[in-house]
Amino acid sequence: MVAFENSTRNFDEPKSARLEARTQPSVKEAISRAAALNGVELSSFVVSAAYRAAQETIEAHRLTVLDSAADRAAFFDALEHPPMPNKRLREAFALRETLISNAD
């Protein structure tokens, strides 16, 4: 049996924020059963699982992995020798400058 690890237990702050979710009864039943098998309350199980998934998602989006040597070479070549901006990019920068100067 996999031991349950509450990934949110080390936070030193009050539990004042609420989460609500609607789901199918069979999904709730499965989650409730998993929580019971781990000997924890449903809300602790759900919040801990959601928090772990959130951390994994944030980490996955924080990192860029270039597996092949060709990918790494192309990436660093583009950094060292960036292409000239095309017409649409030049227009976007011009629009940005206009918006910023009119923001005052």
Rank of each mutant, 00 (worst) to 15 (best):
L66D: 05
A73C: 06
V46P: 00
S48I: 09
T57S: 09
E56K: 06
A73N: 03
T64I: 07
L66G: 08
L79C: 13
A60F: 00
A53S: 11
A54V: 07
T57E: 15
L63W: 05
L66T: 08
A78S: 15
A60M: 00
D71A: 13
F75V: 01
S48W: 01
M84P: 07
S68G: 04
T57Q: 12
P82Y: 04
E59D: 13
A70K: 02
S44Y: 01
E56L: 10
F76W: 07
S43Y: 15
A73T: 08
S48T: 14
V46G: 00
V46W: 05
S48E: 05
A53M: 09
L42H: 03
P83S: 12
M84G: 04
E59V: 00
H61F: 06
D67S: 11
M84F: 15
A60V: 00
S68E: 03
L42A: 11
V47W: 05
E56G: 03
Y51M: 05
P85I: 04
M84H: 14
E59Q: 06
S44A: 13
H81Y: 12
S68D: 03
A49G: 10
R62V: 04
D67P: 05
H81C: 14
V47L: 11
A69D: 12
L42E: 02
E80K: 13
V46I: 15
V65Y: 09
A74R: 03
T57A: 12
V46R: 00
E59K: 08
D71N: 11
P82V: 09
I58W: 00
Y51A: 05
A60D: 12
H81D: 14
E80Y: 10
S43A: 15
L42I: 12
H81V: 02
S44E: 08
V47Q: 06
Q55G: 06
S44F: 01
R62S: 13
T57R: 10
F75P: 00
A78G: 03
P83I: 05
N86S: 09
P85R: 09
R52C: 04
A50Q: 01
A73M: 06
A49Y: 01
E80R: 14
